[in-house]
Design a protein around this nucleic acid. Structure first.
Length: 175
DNA sequence: CGGACGATCCCCT
DNA sequence: GGGGATCGTCCGC
């Protein structure tokens, strides 16, 4: 598939939105390791998301895969994304993208440049107009998500997810 | 088309 | 003990 939307996360104490913000833990250890490897995390009790480690060992950094257009294996992707209402929705959103690829937590740490879970191909030239903006569902310092405009997407691509700002989750009173 | 809300579990403190 | 880099459904326009 063809990536259309990503977000960058740095950590190292300066990026509150990053899972590596508070230092190395068992969960985010992969982000402190070799670049080009897959960092997966589980969130909201049901979703898995995929990142590509992007900084040298010792420096935590990664890119969250947020959107993509499925080019090959359409039948397989559709079978895994039964709730999708159209091919543009197959990998529109980080959890959908991971599901369409068949990524699970067990794939964390896979060497993508070696094709362990899937192969990451980097384009040699620009593939379109790239736009940038605040990251989705993340609040920066002082609640200002725009402090780190590290969301990148292809302008006008139908497989780019719609922006959602960070919302305070409402607690459910236990009866 | 877009806003509101519940679901559900792994991981850190 | 509680938060969370989301999604799907419901509902109104």
């Amino acid at each position: 598939m063809r990536l259309t939307e990503v977000e960058a996360y740095q950590g190292q104490g300066e990026d509150p939105g990053s899972h590596a913000h508070r230092g190395r833990t068992a969960r985010n250890a992969v982000m402190f390791g070799e670049p080009g490897h897959l960092y997966t995390y589980f969130t909201y009790g049901m979703h898995t998301c995929a990142n590509v480690v992007c900084l040298p060992p010792g420096s935590a950094g990664g890119v969250l895969l947020r959107g993509a257009e499925v080019l090959d294996g359409l039948e397989l992707a559709r079978s895994r994304r039964t709730t999708s209402r159209g091919d543009a929705d197959l990998a529109r959103g980080p959890a959908r993208l991971a599901l369409a690829l068949g990524i699970t937590l067990d794939d964390g740490g896979a060497d993508l440049l070696a094709g362990d879970a899937f192969t990451l191909d980097l384009a040699d030239e620009p593939v379109g107009t790239v736009r940038t903006g605040p990251r989705t569902g993340v609040s920066g310092p002082g609640g200002d998500a725009a402090a780190y405009p590290w969301r990148f997407w292809l302008e006008g691509d139908p497989t780019v997810s719609s922006y959602r700002s960070a919302v305070a989750r409402r607690r459910v009173a236990k009866a």
